[in-house]
Amino acid sequence: PTAPPRRPWPKDLEENLEKYTPNGSPAKAERRFVQGHVTADSYRFSISRKSTKVNFACILAVSNTASLLEQEILEEIGKLDDMVQDLYVTEENGTQIRYSQVCTKNQGLCVPSNPLLAAWQMNKNLDLRHITFPIFNQTGQPIYLAGTIGGTLSGKRSVRNQLLVKAKATWLLYYLKTEDGEINELSKMWLIHFLNQFSNIETSLALKKIQVPGGWA
């Protein structure tokens, strides 16, 4: 895809960027779907970051079964995540804007879109029956899951955590660089491309294990 020439963003578009939704996606229906599958705390986690000072995209993935804590479901979520991170925009001069160029980074790598997915991708033998919530320790490193998963059912409690028995839904969050100037414009171009391409991503993956009611920015 070829992007139009870069122009200054109109003030009203700048202020309302977070209101964009994928073409053909009924926003009210999506909102009801989200509220039906994600706890209030998880929903606020996303909404609280919707600022024109923080460019980010988010996707809600909802399991078709009682819980997404299964290898094959995380595999499908991982394929969705890979396809989003492979998105790029081509400018009129042929320059490609890739996610890796505009993502927020930690130690030189894009910040993972979801901590539980990242933990599983690092160790696909991860015992999903022994995930603790809201903090999960992987090889001594605390992983904070609060606000990233919804529709949870907890079991046995320890001092600070509970065993995570079920999780119906999860957010994938893609934070982008927001420095002033050109990098901010490139981030927004990638973000708009994400919104325009979201329905194509969903169609091409032919998802069977999860539902993806929409992508937001």
Rank of each mutant, 00 (worst) to 15 (best):
T2Q: 10
P4V: 14
P10Q: 11
E18F: 11
T21R: 15
T21K: 13
N23F: 12
K28E: 14
R32L: 07
V34P: 00
T39M: 09
D41C: 09
F45N: 13
F45Y: 15
F45T: 08
S48H: 11
T52D: 10
F56M: 13
A57W: 09
A61D: 03
A61T: 10
V62E: 04
V62K: 04
V62H: 04
S63D: 04
A66C: 04
A66S: 13
E70T: 06
E72D: 13
I73G: 01
I73K: 04
L80C: 07
M83H: 13
V84A: 11
V84M: 14
L87S: 10
V89R: 10
T90Y: 03
E92F: 05
N93H: 09
G94S: 11
T95R: 13
S100C: 10
C103R: 07
K105L: 14
L109C: 03
L109D: 07
P112D: 14
N114R: 08
L116P: 01
Q121W: 05
Q121E: 12
K124I: 05
L126W: 05
L126N: 03
L126P: 01
L128W: 06
H130L: 11
I131H: 01
I135Y: 00
G140I: 10
P142L: 14
G147N: 05
T152R: 09
S154C: 10
G155S: 04
R160Y: 08
L164R: 00
L172F: 02
L173C: 08
Y174A: 01
T178G: 12
N184W: 11
M189P: 00
I192D: 06
L195S: 10
S199L: 11
N200Y: 03
E202T: 13
S204R: 13
L207P: 01
L207Q: 05
K209Y: 05
G215F: 06
